[in-house]
Design a protein around this nucleic acid. Structure first.
Lengths: 236, 236
DNA sequence: TCAAAAGTGTTCGGACTACACCCATGA
DNA sequence: TCATGGGTGTAGTCCGAACACTTTTGA
């Protein structure tokens, strides 16, 4: 009863590039693949799109299986569709990228999948074209974070400006002037200063800030100029 | 002999959002659908991904079938994967958007598909989720053109600054100051002034410019500030 | 008391905006 | 000669970058 009887059907997969920040470094969540082919090799978390779920639903459900949590930042990135990208069978994969606060999800990361966080400089060789996906995701993150306040998704509810700066510096592999950085970030009006200080990382202590969710949602798409000299950085 | 025998295969389609500029207005290329379902309704140009072609190849080949030409600007935009987006059967579609100079391809547009250019304010109701695809594409074009010199892809080899300005003004539905516009565009160093003038649109005539291809390719990813007050415009 | 990190102010230069007039030419 | 569109210059403002010292406090 198909309307397109002569056309070939294919498998459609989702792969999730999951970024996390531990307060010091940007990290990537990888799993040890449980099924053949390429069993026990490192790979992105992925799965097939089921007949009764949209691709966004599929991505969310795959991420939930891995991290146990819902409601994290998840965005469709790009479809990967080389003919031989999976040597076994033709599979088109739609890659999503997710941003999560490592500490919030630490407990809940499923051990069933042998998931581990990897420092971005120590990503192992992955199956199929997954290294390429990670590379694309890293560029996309850099690009987007230069214009939109997306990196707050990686931070806990309360964070300090030095922590935020460390995150930006890690992502752009650069050092920024702290006076200019703090002025620029505060001028967005997105941060609400707390009374409390974080005394863990310094003797003096740094004030906590919270994100103003309302303004964040309003201003998310506005062009902010969050990075000094973006043209000098390798964003693409 | 499949490695994933229990998984359901699906159809994968490509749909192309083809933008053109006729010197006055931004237009969209649509076809009258030749096959059931929804025969004779307006739709984007599309087709299925064949087993032996990558998704990029499929997009290029579909565009070639329609316009007869190769080498035009074509970029993957987004996958659309709602379960019921095609009421007949589950189909995931990967949307691509293309930018072409209408006049260059006018002759070659295939009449086999009943293709027609539509003014952006007069897009008819399209099949499936194609109107949504068009909307997404329009936003993406605005977003990208605010940062990168992508709109040159819509212009003929030789063009005048007033023409270029008309293009930007059409895309952003705004009016820009011509002194500031010309200064900003020329300061990118992307344009090479020609001796010749275009005398069609004015008595005095406007100098033609050509794109400096080398610098264009070099600088394509740099952040340019091509649009005044981008925050005031609806880019997303 | 000292080491280590947090926090803050000023100056300079370049970029963006607003704005108005002259030029060339075909009708 | 005049109407039409092309082309250009300037002044003021704002934003971003560079740069150094003081504060706090735990060890």
């Amino acid at each position: 009863m198909s309307k397109y009887p002569q056309q070939k059907r294919m498998l459609i997969a989702i792969d999730c590039i999951v970024f996390g920040f531990d307060g010091e470094n940007l990290k990537l969540l990888l799993i040890q693949r449980a099924i053949e082919p390429e069993k026990n090799k490192w790979s992105l978390m992925g799965g097939f799109v089921e007949p009764d779920e949209s691709i966004d639903d599929a991505a969310n459900s795959i991420l939930k299986k891995l991290t146990g949590l819902e409601g994290v930042y998840l965005e469709q990135m790009q479809a990967f569709g080389e003919v031989k990208r999976d040597p076994g069978e033709r599979i088109v994969s739609i890659a999503y990228f997710a941003l999560i606060d490592i500490h919030q999800y630490e407990q809940q990361i499923s051990h069933e999948y042998h998931a581990e966080w990897f420092h971005m400089d120590q990503i192992p060789s992955l199956i199929f074209d997954h290294n390429q996906m990670v590379d694309t995701a890293r560029k996309k993150l850099r690009y987007k974070a230069a214009l939109h306040p997306i990196l707050f998704e990686l931070l806990p509810e309360k964070f300090t400006i030095p922590q935020l700066q460390a995150l930006y510096e890690g992502i752009y592999d650069s050092v920024f002037d702290k006076r200019n950085f703090s002025r620029k970030i505060l001028s967005t009006g997105l941060l609400i200063k707390q009374q409390e200080k974080d005394k863990l990382n310094s003797k003096k202590g740094a004030f906590y800030y919270k994100l103003d969710k309302g303004k964040y949602n309003e201003n998310f798409h506005a062009f902010l100029n969050l990075i000094p000299n973006p043209d000098h950085l390798q964003l693409i």
